[in-house]
Structure formats: structure tokens, C-alpha cells
Design a binder for these strands. Sequence first.
DNA 1: TATTCCGATAGTGAC
DNA 2: GTCACTATCGGAATGAG
Lengths: 250, 250
Amino acid sequence: MSQLTVLRSYALKSNPATLPPSVLLSHSETSVTLFDAFPKSIFHFLILPRPQPSLSIFDLANLSSLLKCDNSKAKSVLLTMKEEAQSVKDMIESEMMKRYGFKWGIWTGFHAVPSMEHLHLHVLSNDLCSPRMRKKQHYQSFHPKHGFFLHLDDVLSWFDAEPSYYDTVSQLKKSQYEPLLKGDFECWKCERVIANMPALKSHLQEEWDKEMQRETAKLKRKQKSPDLPTAKGTDALETVPKERRSPDAA
Amino acid sequence: MSQLTVLRSYALKSNPATLPPSVLLSHSETSVTLFDAFPKSIFHFLILPRPQPSLSIFDLANLSSLLKCDNSKAKSVLLTMKEEAQSVKDMIESEMMKRYGFKWGIWTGFHAVPSMEHLHLHVLSNDLCSPRMRKKQHYQSFHPKHGFFLHLDDVLSWFDAEPSYYDTVSQLKKSQYEPLLKGDFECWKCERVIANMPALKSHLQEEWDKEMQRETAKLKRKQKSPDLPTAKGTDALETVPKERRSPDAA
DNA sequence: TATTCCGATAGTGAC
DNA sequence: GTCACTATCGGAATGAG
């Protein structure tokens, strides 16, 4: 199975439960939720809508094709995905508490120009610390303010806008969104300009370490709890099952 | 000593004989001949003119600065270098016969835009087979028809041309000659277009192996000699003394 | 077009 | 913006005691 179409093959499974546990997190009648095979954060999942009698695999090819459907149908699909995303978010936050003793941000959205076929909603923690975060475009494609990463709630708001705006924005033209990846290379959190990828990775790790220390200290003050989790860095635990981790160094 | 100025330091030596034998091939009152530290062919030498009472180290900075001198003085320097080049060429051909049993082409010329300071005349065999031939620009800079490699006899012919032509061509402007390196990437011998450097290196090796086989067969027919040299490829022998070879694979 | 080191960039192929 | 692989391109430093 080619990487280009593997998501489609998962969405087409009549019984997603047959997917290996290293791939499948959960599924329902309307969606399949996967461990991202190349997570760009400590937590990173993909939610795939499944075809329905009224919703073909072609309608679900990507966000643009979905938005070309009847508006109410498209919106309904996205709202269902949002429900599933909320459930995944809850699970992630539960894991965050269990493993790290505190919670941090989670983003839910689409890439404006995806490379893999079949609509997939990213749900990922905002640390962006992962050995698979390797290329500038990886990072830029998740930057929450560059416009390439389309937050689900922003996409949903398009339905309430002028039809002409909806028509324009829902085309998701490569020529319009691709340049956004070449924008300023800076930390999304502190807006510092970053020289290159090694510097970015160090900086993101520092940012997250600082957040962990801040939150851990906060909890200690509030709860005076003596037995908090003590995991440090991102090496210790990932949502990707061990057996499918690639051998990258952190 | 920086690589940028090392040639100048050699040319300034009051006694070139103190240079290590791994660097120095020979010297005279007017020139120093070196083993190229990074030979791009099986045989590759550099001839450096030495400063004289009437010829400063600044005049000898590069070809352009030399050509700005009095015409007869500049021509005289080049003619002296040509004599030395002929002597080096004779030596190379003698080595070719001794090591390989046949002779092949030798080029004598300057790079229009050199990277190292102090005028240096390249004298190299036209196999272009060497582990140090690694980058496209290495190859392009020696291509005999691209115009970046200035054959010594061509440069000498400038003195017989219109003064306006001489003035223009002798400026050797980077903006004029640099683009020549981006030209077609093809075998100088058979004009086949080459995809990339690994392909070029294979092709050049094949071309030279073919030449060797052709010449060896020719000699066998003519001389019916049973004990010709049998060296194959470029690994066996180089003009660069063993102790200063870098550990590159062929 | 001196090299070397590092990083970014570009094209390919994948079933 | 799927990855992995290969090759190319691009800038910066290069000495010295």
C-alpha cells in the first residue's frame, strides 16, 4: 500500500477493528481514529471520516471536495468529526495527566494542502516535540497562525460567512496556501525568529521543558502532593506504541 | 595557512626546495610546480609564477591582474609558464607510458574565475578520473569547450587580437564567466548528456577504460609486445604521493 | 571556480 | 504540505600556540 493512499484504504475498511492496534486508536460508524504514523508532537492522532450511503469516498477525498458537497451535509460531517475530536482530546488530556501530571494545549485542524489522500483531521498536542519533526515544512504546516493549518472551528465558521467568501476560501488552492509555508520561521509561542531546524527543535524542547517545570511547580504549590509524575522530556512516553516507533534519536 | 592564500605563500618562498616533496614537483627561478592537492585527473599539476624584480606579487595575483601589466611583460610571463608546462607535459607523458603503456590528452590552462589567490596554471590529463572530482563545478570548470577553462594558447592568442577585444576579455569578470559553469552537463568527449555526478564519474571511467583498451590493443598489434603494463582503472597509481592522499574511495 | 561542514532544497519513487 | 533516498545547492569558516 502506497503512503499516498493508505489513509483511504483505512477509511474503506468495512471492519476497522481488523487494523493493527499500532495503527488504530478507535472507530465508530462514522470515523476511524489513528495513531499518526509519523507524529510531530508527543500526542498526534488522525481522525478519518468513513464513507456513508450519502457520502462517497470521492466526497471525502479532501476538505475541498467535502466542502463542495451540500453545505448542510458537509457541515454535519465536520460536526461529527468535531465530536470525535473532543473525545480524542479528552483521552489525550487524561494521558497527559497520567504521564506528565499536567495538561497542555491541543490543536484540532486540517492541512490546507494535504499530501495524502482522504480527508484527515489532525489532533495533536502543541509541544511539537518529536523526532519526526524534521523538516521546516513539517513545522510550518502546523504553525497555528500561518494559515496553512486550518483550525476546525475556523473551518466551521466559514458556513456562517457570505456564500462568496465560502466559495473562495473552500477551494483551498495550492497556489494560495503553499506560500504560507515559506513564511517567517519563528516560535509560535514566543514569536522568536529561529535560524534553522536544529535550533527550532532545541527551542521547542526548551519551551516545553519550561512549561512542564512551571506547571509542576504550580501543582506542587496547590496540592502539596509528594508523588507527582516525574517524566522529563519527550523520550519517556509517546502515544505511538513502542513496536511501531522508528529508530530515530530524539 | 589558509587554503585561500597557500599558493601565494609557496610562490613567495625564497627557496622552494624547502617545500615538502609531497607538494613540490620542481622549481626554477621563474616558477614553482606543485602537485595539485586535490587532483581532478590521474595527473594534475599547478605551475605558479614567482615574483621577480619587475613583477610584483600583486601583478601575479591572478590572470586578470597579470594581463593589466605591460603587454609584453605579461606575454613574457605566460610564455615562460608555457615552457615550464611543456616540460611538465613531457614528464606526464613519460609517466603515462611507464605506468599505463600509452599516452592520452593533457590540458594546459587557467580557470577564468579562480578561488585561490595567486596565478596558477593547471596542467592535467584529460581523463578527469579522480576521487576528488566530486562536484559539478569541479567538472564544469575543466570542460574544454565551456569557456571557463582558458587554454593557455587561447590566452596567448589574445595578444594578437584587437586591443579593444583584449581589454574586454582580459577583465575576466565573474558575472561573465560564472554562468558558464551552469551550462549543459555533458561528456566533453562524446557529448552525451549526463544526469548527475555519479553518472558522470561512471561515464568518465568507462570512457577512459575504453581508451585504455583501445590503445593497449593498438600497441599489441603494432609491437606484438607480450609484456605491456596492465594497470587498470585509476586506483593503482596517481601522481600524488601516497602519504598525502586523502582517504576517499575511488 | 581551494575544502569542509552543516543545513536547506529539489526530484524520485513508493504499490 | 506522506516518507526515504539521493543529489544538489548555499553559506560560513578556514590560520594560529
